[in-house]
Simulated assay, not measured.
Amino acid sequence: MYYLMLKQKIKDFLTEEDGIGTVEMILILVVLIGIVLIFKEQLNSLVESIFKTINEQAKKV
């Protein structure tokens, strides 16, 4: 009897898909962090350029 309950609990655990979303989110975050690290210098120069343009345009208003 106990063996059947244990077998069913193991089967339920293996077929459970609740944790899949968490794993996917972690993988997406790891990929995004990797992309940011690879293109760090380009992103910094892009952001600096955008803020420089914003400041120049704000002075004209």
Rank of each mutant, 00 (worst) to 15 (best):
M1W: 08
Y2T: 00
Y2K: 03
Y3P: 02
Y3A: 15
Y3M: 15
L4E: 07
M5N: 12
M5T: 05
M5G: 05
L6W: 02
L6E: 12
Q8M: 09
Q8L: 12
Q8R: 13
K9R: 09
K9C: 05
K9Q: 10
I10N: 02
I10P: 02
I10A: 02
K11Y: 10
K11G: 03
K11E: 06
D12V: 03
D12Q: 14
F13P: 00
T15R: 01
T15H: 07
E17F: 05
V23A: 14
E24D: 13
E24H: 08
M25Y: 03
M25R: 15
I26E: 12
L29M: 10
V30M: 14
V30C: 12
V31F: 09
V31W: 02
L32D: 01
I33G: 09
I33D: 04
I33H: 00
G34C: 09
G34L: 09
L37D: 05
I38C: 05
F39C: 05
K40P: 00
E41Y: 06
Q42E: 14
L43R: 00
L43K: 01
N44M: 13
N44P: 00
L46S: 04
L46V: 01
L46Y: 05
V47I: 15
V47Q: 03
E48Q: 13
S49M: 01
I50Q: 05
F51W: 12
F51S: 06
T53A: 14
I54Q: 01
I54V: 14
E56R: 04
E56S: 07
Q57F: 10
Q57N: 14
A58K: 09
A58D: 11
A58Q: 07
K59P: 01
K59F: 02
